[in-house]
Computed example of a mutant assay.
Amino acid sequence: MIAERAKKVKPSPTLAVDSKAKELKAKGFDVVNFGVGEPDFDTPEHIKEAAIKAIRDGFTKYTPVGGIDELKEAIIEKLERDNGLKYGKENILVSCGAKHSLYNIAQALFGPGDEVIIPSPYWVSYPDQVLINDAQPVIVETKEENDFMVEPDALKEKITPRTKAIIINSPSNPTGFIYTKKALEEIAEIALKNNIYIISDEIYEKLIYDGEKHISIASLSEEVKERTIVVNGLSKSHAMTGWRIGYAAGPVEIIKTMTKIQSQSTSNPTSIAQKAAVAALKGPQDCVEKMRQEFEKRRDYLVKELNNIAGVSCRMPKGAFYVFPNVNKVLGKNGINSSMDLSIYLLEKAFVALVPGSAFGTEGYIRISYATSMENLAKGIERIRKSLEELR
């Protein structure tokens, strides 16, 4: 029989949409895929060359479980340079992607009876990673008019003696919004007062627009840092999704426990990918800025076009590569009563793949990824416009 904890886990809706879109495409349909959160750029050449050199040099054996020293040192330099955070190698764990880092944290911290606060809209894997570790996700709703940032009073209402942690994601998947320093300070104050951990997912840190600046909550004070586990990686910033390199930085005891867990699951991340990650962190960063500028152009175009579609409204996100338009005025027509109904309709009618807001815990919205070409954006938006007009 299947273990009860495994029955609690749902398949990733974003990957399910991507799979369905690829299935239709394989059958010959011209599908525009707005569903997947993966940069459409190739991994920069200097990073690929570092991996090729690693292969030729025979760097193809096991490495230390938590990552090679060279990579840990590069991560330490990055965290101090970009985030004002000082760590030692004992505070760093390199894993097989940021998702793996988050899973290791859940394994190390959560257990039966624990509660973990997750603001919605949330990245789809947060609740399931809590559930699979026999803890309980506690969802706190946020408001569009507040840029989907959790409000202090709403957060306080959800805290109980069983609360173990809060997970924050800035810039956010799916909304694209970022937390202000004031909002982070409020969360930090509540976390410290209630002795709960902060898990800060900062994977989209390098993709921020309009001159805004990313602030890591761990940088607010040494006291906050001691209660925070920072998660980051190279998938989004350096177009390295398939390389599977993520990392966590946090208190020694927690990182040590996560490393022990990793030693009994995946062991070390791929040796070759680790060498590539060193090149990514220590090499030229103009490639990252080039991608960021292109994403910003796409965001500006997409938000403008969405707001020109009747029944759709879309706020301007500040980061990541997603928009999260409000489609409540579209729902209720022709039997389309939910964001899932709308997503299915647009996939089958317009051959446009996107993800329903319900997958992120927030009904009445859809998530569109603009990690695709301007040509695809124009084609997809026109198809959405025509299909929604037919619902009137």
Rank of each mutant, 00 (worst) to 15 (best):
K290H: 15
A310P: 09
K318A: 09
F321N: 05
C314V: 01
R292W: 06
K318P: 02
V327H: 04
E294L: 11
L306W: 11
V288N: 15
N308K: 10
F324M: 05
Y301C: 00
G311C: 08
F321Q: 02
L306D: 01
E289V: 03
R292I: 00
F321I: 07
G319L: 02
R292S: 01
L302E: 00
K297E: 03
E305K: 03
C287P: 14
L306Y: 10
L281W: 01
K282N: 14
P317H: 12
D300E: 08
K290N: 14
C314E: 04
E305V: 04
P284S: 14
A310H: 14
K297G: 05
P317A: 12
L306M: 03
L281F: 03
V323H: 09
F321S: 06
A310D: 12
K282H: 09
K318W: 15
S313P: 03
R315K: 13
F324Y: 08
V303G: 00
I309K: 02
G311K: 05
P325M: 07
D300H: 09
V323A: 00
N308V: 08
G283P: 09
E296L: 04
C314F: 07
P325G: 05
A280V: 10
L302K: 01
Y301T: 00
V327G: 03
E289K: 10
E296H: 10
Q285P: 11
K290Y: 12
Y301I: 05
S313C: 09
R292T: 04
D286W: 15
C287S: 13
F324H: 04
D286F: 07
A280R: 06
F321A: 10
L306H: 03
L281I: 10
S313R: 12
D300F: 11
K282G: 15
Y322P: 09
F295P: 00
K304E: 08
M316P: 01
K329R: 15
E289T: 13
A310R: 14
G283L: 06
K282I: 13
N308I: 07
L302I: 04
R298F: 13
E296V: 01
M316G: 02
K282A: 15
N308P: 06
L306C: 04
A310K: 14
F324C: 04
R298Q: 02
C287H: 15
K282W: 10
A320Y: 11
V312R: 02
K329G: 07
G283D: 02
